[in-house]
């Protein structure tokens, strides 16, 4: 790429620069939107389709990179089911998850989001009986209460606990 730069058509260079600027603006826009609800990563189609096939595609920042690495290395034994993918797709999703992973705290790399100190703290006011309601099923079912979780929005204002 760099070696043929001097020979480039100047018009193409201008178009390239304009496209580059647009890309930067798009990324900046996505980041700003992500900061608002703090969960939405830039979209990754494979992550959304493959993880979202069986459960809500959990936001990468909810676990540290080491946790995602462990999860993605044993997809054929994924919390009691075989969730294996072809190696290329698994690698793409693993790299996406690790790139947008949360910070590691206290050297722990839990495999379940619900076991992180952050999750427990955020949900400390939810009575145990609520998790057991058929309408909720389990703490893994984010969307039962976080009605906009599918869009990456976990804001308290959008929470409605079902009966």
């Amino acid at each position: 790429m760099r070696t043929d730069a001097p020979r480039r058509d100047p018009r193409r260079t201008a178009i390239g620069a304009a496209l580059g600027l647009l890309a930067v603006l798009a990324v900046a826009g996505a980041t700003a939107a992500g900061d608002r609800d703090r969960m939405a990563p830039p979209p990754n189609a494979a992550w959304k389709t493959e993880c979202g096939a069986c459960h809500l595609p959990y936001p990468p920042r909810l676990l540290p990179a080491r946790s995602w690495r462990a999860i993605m290395s044993e997809l054929d034994r994924h919390f009691g089911t075989d969730a294996s993918l072809d190696p290329a797709q698994a690698a793409e999703i693993a790299s996406f998850l690790e790139r947008h992973a949360g910070r590691e705290r206290g050297g722990a790399a839990p495999l379940r989001i619900t076991e992180t100190p952050w999750f427990r703290r955020e949900h400390r006011e939810v009575p145990v009986a609520v998790w057991a309601r058929p309408s909720v099923g389990s703490p893994a079912n984010c969307a039962a209460c976080h009605r906009t979780a599918e869009q990456g929005d976990y804001d308290d204002d959008t929470v409605t606990i079902p009966r």
């Binding site: 069986c54 459960h55 809500l56 919390f79 009691g80 089911t81 099923g137 389990s138 893994a140 079912n141």
Partner: peptide, 9 residues
């Protein structure tokens, strides 16, 4: 339609 036995999806 069905329902995933563990996740409820």
């Amino acid at each position: 339609p069905g329902t995933h036995a563990t996740t409820g999806k």
